[in-house]
Amino acid sequence: MSIFGRIADLFQAKTHKLLSSLEDPNETLDLSYEKMITGLQDTKRHLADVVAQQQSLHRQIGKADAEIAEAESDARTAVTADRDDLARAALVHKQDALAKRRTLDEALAAITPQVQKLVEYERRLADRIEQFRTQKEVMKTTYTAAQAQVKVTEALTGLGGHLGHTGDALRRVNEKVEGMRDKADAMGHMLEAGVLTDQFDDRSASKRELDVLKATSAVDDELAQLKASTTKVIPPL
């Protein structure tokens, strides 16, 4: 394959991919339905034109029959009056009307099948459009439901972009919370140990240390008393 052929294939593939990404199935279905409706309307207009021609032929045939009948009547009247010349003229008029009648009959015979075909085609096209309309609505509903399901799934799994970084954000926040909790615990221990001082505590460092020792001593004394009170006395043998 030549380089130009490969470029043409690549361009066609890229164009097809771009058109596919831009194409909305719902809009495509609606557009196809509108085109079918337009085709049906065109068919109805053609049918109306042909039917109008058919009716016109029927009217012209009626006029030709009236001319034939009138010519025959005129010929009889002329013969009764012994006017062969007028009778001949009336009969010539009758022949012309008969020729005209035959031409109209041929035209009517030619157009009648066309009318029947157009009527049948219009009926079939209307049925097809109605079937397509039903299928279109079903397909649009199915596509919309599937599209919604895809969007929800993308949101839940993070593929859609809206919640794509939510999991990472939660992990980062959790790490910060744990880090802040550890820092708070450490500072609490340091405050208790006297490493950090309370700025609202106006005691001196030595006073605070003595208070800690007193509290520790009080706890030790209370613990010794508790142990003494719970010690069982073993009776002598």
Rank of each mutant, 00 (worst) to 15 (best):
Q54W: 02
K232R: 07
K136V: 03
K35W: 01
D74C: 03
M190Y: 01
V92N: 01
D185C: 02
E192V: 05
L18N: 11
H46M: 14
S229T: 07
L159G: 14
T103R: 10
Y143D: 12
D168G: 04
E120H: 02
L31T: 10
Q147G: 09
T134V: 07
R59P: 08
L237P: 03
E137W: 00
M1Q: 00
V150L: 04
L47C: 01
A110S: 10
S204D: 07
H162M: 00
A148R: 08
D221H: 08
E70L: 15
L18E: 09
K117Y: 10
E130F: 06
Q41C: 09
R124E: 07
D65A: 10
G39A: 13
L191N: 02
A205D: 11
M139P: 13
V50S: 07
T77H: 07
R88P: 00
A148P: 00
D221G: 07
K183V: 05
D85Y: 02
S73A: 15
A81N: 04
I7G: 01
A148S: 07
K232P: 00
A97V: 14
D221T: 15
M190Q: 02
F11M: 11
Q95N: 12
E23K: 09
Q135C: 06
L118W: 06
L10F: 06
V212Q: 03
E67Q: 15
T197K: 09
R88Y: 11
M1C: 02
Q55C: 03
H46I: 08
D65H: 04
D198Q: 06
L40N: 15
G39P: 01
A186C: 04
S56T: 14
H16C: 02
F11V: 15
T216R: 02
K117A: 14
K140Q: 15
E130D: 09
R59I: 05
G179Q: 07
T141K: 15
